[in-house]
Design a protein around this nucleic acid. Structure first.
Length: 579
RNA sequence: GCACCCAUAGCUCAAUUGGAUAGAGCAUCUGACUACGGAUCAGAAGGUUUCAGGUUCAACUCCUGAUGGGUGCGCCA
């Protein structure tokens, strides 16, 4: 067990002895913000004392009297208003690293209570290209899935693609009237997008076209064989292009159940809502009202339109019900942009009502993991000069191209295929990292330069640190093949101690990502790790050190490389041995 | 009109139960052994955390109000 966890458990036990009624789940041990205070701290005693009108320092003293952490700590201080500062024993630090070197752990622990989580993300629309707007959902969702899986949870990733709805009326008219099959072969989505735009524009001018689209849609919905066939073709072609992007990004879905999958569940869902008195007729439509929820008081959710058709709220409710039946998840996570907050509030509230009405409600935790809108560099909603959005494929191409120029400049000796491969890893890494680094709730200012930056707090910085470590090992191997692993690590230089201590925090970073759905915690952790490694690298010779020190430092390097690689993998970013 | 979100260094952003001296990157300036790999490092400068109150031992964080910006609001998804 990692030292901070041991301290935490003992601290909680000590608190329970003194304050049997206290909620010890809130008694946490975290790294100190500044090493001068110590290695780990707990702030939990201050709120506990306050709630009981006790003197916090006195409480701290009493807790300390019941607390024996001498196996991992050399001392514990009470500071300020009642902080507990724990100073880790050198031997405990070395033992933790030794265990990691033996492969017993990598500074994190699998959860003791695995849960099932369904993650709904990416969700592009059929017949439309994926653009920069899809990158956040895709990258964020993928990262959350990876983090939860690494911690031992069961994850179902589901791509809820937009494969049903009114746009197909227009698409069908266009397809039948003026499909360019050559263009369809070269760029299927581009051609379908062209058709959609053309008919959509025409419909605004010409009521006859609008009516034609409506009729094609009705035919599709009624199962007309020809329209069904075209519709299936459109989905197939779209999926092919989505898959090409996902494959580049290394994103995998366990299932792709689009909106159409739920068609035959819509009517029964609404009927059930009506039967249970959760939904009612209103102005010709069927709606769920939320009079008991202040924010939703005047904001009913429509689940059936006055023309009898269903909308996306209906689909989302049916989807929730399906996911619950199919996987019995403890948690369902939606990764979409912030504009859908009201929608998900409504859906979650409606679903709550619906399931609560059942005999044995087992309602999963529902989370809307939202992110800010994409803005242009002028702070206004993002558009290119020509008024288009940037296509995701173009962004990835540009990233690889820019990286290739840098790689070629720095490593002119490498053959082109090798430079291409490095550029791919570095370019895609830069894009992903740029997307995951900011707090997801901030609005997203799109900038080519920021997205594709290769210096500073970026993925290439982390990849570079990794490559440098690997370079040390290549060199070490050439020098002597017979170096034995050390019996125990000897850490003496301040930089190597700082690096070693930072390694111990990997698990906390992972837990923060999974618990709060915020990958930026991991980005920052890794950036600091790479920074501490670089400080070590500058100040502590590895290969030139005396044998014992050298062996110990090699282990430290190896563990750092492993954590960098594993951490980047959670972010969906690859590493290279040389760059 | 109502609701939600946001406001931190010149720019783009961090800040993990309310915690200790608000941190990074970019840009700017000064430096670094012919480099265990310079896609690097050390340092300087840059802040009344939009404003005004309040709660607290402690506020970027919570509450109230103001200002500015964004988004959403029954038959589009």
């Amino acid at each position: 067990m990692l030292p901070h966890k041991q301290i935490e458990l003992k601290l909680q036990a000590a608190v329970r002895v003194l304050l049997p009624d206290a909620d010890t789940a809130a008694v946490l041990v975290r790294p100190c913000p500044d090493p001068k205070f110590g290695d780990y701290q707990s702030n939990a005693l201050m709120p506990l004392a306050k709630a009981r009108r006790m003197n916090p320092r006195l409480l701290a003293e009493n807790v300390l009297a019941k607390l024996d952490v001498s196996d991992v700590c050399e001392r514990v201080d009470i500071a300020g208003a009642g902080f507990l500062n724990f100073h880790l024993k050198d031997s405990s630090l070395a033992q933790t690293l030794d265990a990691a070197a033996r492969g017993e752990h990598l500074f994190f622990e699998k959860t003791a209570a695995p849960k099932t989580a369904v993650i709904d993300f990416s969700s592009p629309n059929v017949a439309k290209p994926m653009h920069v707007g899809h990158i956040r959902s895709t990258i964020l969702g993928d990262c959350l899935a990876r983090a939860l899986r690494l911690l031992g949870h069961r994850v179902v990733t589901d791509n809820h693609i937009g494969d049903w709805g009114t746009q197909f009326g227009m698409l069908l008219v266009g397809w039948k009237r003026e499909l360019n099959s050559t263009a369809l072969d070269t760029d299927a989505i581009g051609e379908m997008e062209r058709l959609y735009k053309k008919i959509s524009a025409e419909s605004r001018e010409n009521p006859a076209t609008l009516e034609a689209a409506r009729q094609e849609l009705v035919k599709l919905q009624n199962g007309d064989p020809e329209n069904l066939k075209i519709w299936r073709k459109m989905i197939e072609l779209s999926k092919k292009q989505f898959d090409a992007i996902y494959s580049r990004l290394g994103v995998k879905f366990d299932c792709t159940l689009g909106e159409s999958f739920y068609n035959d569940r819509l009517k029964s869902s609404v009927d059930e809502l009506l039967a249970r008195g959760i939904a009612r007729e209103s102005e010709g439509a069927i709606a769920v009202f939320f009079d008991e929820i202040p924010q939703l008081k005047d904001k009913p959710a429509l689940v059936r339109k006055s023309d009898g058709g269903f909308n996306y709220a209906t689909t989302d409710l049916a989807t929730l019900a399906y996911r619950m039946e199919k996987w019995q998840p403890a948690e369902i996570i939606y990764v979409t942009d912030g504009r859908q907050q009201l929608h998900f509030q409504q859906i979650f509230a409606a679903f709550q009502k619906w399931q609560s009405a059942k005999p044995q409600p087992a309602i999963p935790r529902l989370a809307h993991v939202w992110f800010g809108s994409i803005l242009g560099e002028d702070g206004k909603p993002f558009k290119t000069r020509s008024g288009e959005t940037v296509k995701l494929a173009d962004l990835l191409d540009e990233a690889e191209e820019r990286a290739f120029r840098i790689v070629s400049e720095k490593n002119s000796g490498f053959l082109e295929p090798q430079r291409r491969e490095i550029a791919r890893v570095v370019g895609l890494g830069a894009v992903k990292y740029a997307d995951l680094l900011p707090n997801r709730q901030s609005d997203y200012v799109f900038s080519w330069d920021k997205m594709l930056a290769l210096t500073g707090n970026t993925a290439p910085y982390l990849q570079y640190a990794y490559a440098r470590i690997r370079s040390i090992f290549r060199k070490a191997q050439n020098e002597s093949a017979n170096s034995q692993p050390p019996a125990a690590l000897t850490l003496s230089a301040t930089e190597e101690i700082a690096l070693a201590k930072h390694l111990l925090g990997f698990g906390l970073a992972l837990e923060a990502v999974a618990g709060e759905f915020r990958p930026n915690f991991l980005c920052n952790y890794l950036f600091e790790l790479a920074g501490k490694f670089t400080a070590f690298y500058e100040n502590c010779p590895v290969l030139k050190a005396d044998e014992v020190i050298r062996a110990s430092r090699l282990v430290l390097c190896d563990l750092t490389a492993q954590v960098l690689k594993q951490g980047l993998d959670v972010l969906g970013i690859e590493v290279v041995e040389q760059m």
